[in-house]
């Protein structure tokens, strides 16, 4: 059963992966990081990504049509995708069986990254991280 480091290293094996982290979106704490970060500072990146994740999780506009189901204290949003000229960011919320507010953040190069694959794999990793 993988821990945080194994999970992040697995994420880094995805094509185009530049950096990955596990972040708490309430505090902005980076619980684990690997590889590079966009501004050269994983902690600062985590704090900024956390703010984005929090807004996405909490605003009703991004909840499914049937409403925001926070059963188990987990947000109704599955992931966030950001695209810019040279890279992708995928933020995947991690559903835990204890009270938490955690997501996986993967940063991918756009030229060699595969967004669809990364999104699917990140979802699988998020589940394995806590469920096994």
């Amino acid at each position: 059963m993988p821990g945080i480091d194994e999970c992040l290293l697995e994420a880094m094996r995805l094509p185009g992966a530049r950096g990955a982290s596990v972040v708490d979106w309430t505090s902005g704490l980076a619980l684990g990081t690997v590889g590079d970060s966009p501004n050269g500072d994983h902690e600062a990146t985590a704090a900024e990504a956390a703010e984005l994740a929090r807004l996405a999780a909490e605003h009703k506009a991004f909840a499914p049509e049937e409403g925001a189901d926070w059963s188990g204290g987990q947000p109704p949003v599955e992931d966030l995708i950001i695209c810019n000229k040279d890279s992708y960011h995928v933020l995947r919320f991690v559903r835990t069986t204890f009270d938490s507010s955690v997501f996986l953040h993967l940063w991918l190069g756009r030229s060699d990254g595969n967004l669809a694959l990364a999104r699917i794999r990140l979802g699988e990793m998020a589940e394995r991280l806590v469920v096994g």
Binding site: M1, P2, G3, I4, E6, C7, V22, D24, S27, L29, L31, G32, V94, T96, T97, F98, S100, V102, R128, L129, V130, V131, G132
Partner: peptide, 15 residues
């Protein structure tokens, strides 16, 4: 628990 779940919870609790 998975190692990941323990680490996430424990690390969060530590900080």
């Amino acid at each position: 628990l998975t190692a990941g779940a323990l680490e996430l919870c424990h690390l969060g609790a530590l900080y």
